[in-house]
Amino acid sequence: MINWTSLRLQVPMLRRCLSTLTKSEARKKRNELFDSEAKRQRAAVGRIEKIEVKYSGPSDEITLVMNKHLSTPFDCAKHISEGVTKVAALAEVNGTPWDMHRPFNSECEIKFVTMASPESQVVNKAFWRSCSLMMGAVAETAFKDSISIHLHSFPIPNVRSGSFLHDISLGFEDWKPTVAELQSLSALYIKLSQKNLPIERLVVGESIALEMFQDNPYKSEQIPNIARHSEDSVTLYRIGDHIDVSKGPMIGNTGIIGRCTVASVHKLSTDEYGTLYRFQGVALPAGILLNHFAYGILEERARKLNNSVWVPSKIVEDSEDQIAAVAN
């Protein structure tokens, strides 16, 4: 259990994010904005144009006639087979990684990438990024409404670092989660992944994004920056009713995540943002079976503070130097 008396609210934090909305109200408002914007974009397509999409699978090649600016790789997968809709994590449209729920812009060739056939690390990175996104969703729902929790950000996914991250401000100074608390966070994580929710994508203008994240001081600072680098647009992702900003791409469905653990929460003290908590976890795709000893090693590694700078090539060199030193 959390010892509530030891948790003190941070005064500067409170002042910065005075908002009239409670957490759930803010979430509801965000979703309403997301829905209305999606509806507006759907209506703005106007007259529906048909495009040819060539699918090349392992055994056959199919040409599908789809709708421009409306149909997504997920729709193509539904035409092919139910199995493909379940396992396809990412699509490759003319060779570039493409979200499963992102509409096509033009005629194209399409391929599906699953977690069992990662031709490159792109799909693994998308998986790791989606795991970070989900960590935010879990953390936001795990705490009571009275706690002012604000998601800060998650860094570029680095699978080799051993854990996925999400930096979150919780509004109290010293919190060290007990084992039971971490386990209950993990349980929430698993529950969310088992809902098989689609990870929706929407590109919105800067103003709408700012309106959505009005109550989040970090996001409202980051959004103008992001918009400046990507032609005044911000890419949003939604799982269930959780919305976050990310460049993407993400995997198509939360059901692709199989085994997962919220491994640790580390306190980060930054000058700029005050106290942030780094939530770390490790997950494996569904369908990959790993014995619990090996998974235990991964969990153990995910527990260490992840500085998200992990250069394995350098470390190999170092270790060789050390061998040389020993040999001398």
Partner: peptide, 12 residues
Amino acid sequence: RNLLHNVLLDEA
């Protein structure tokens, strides 16, 4: 070698 758990185990 690209499977996620193999990447993780390699680094570990």
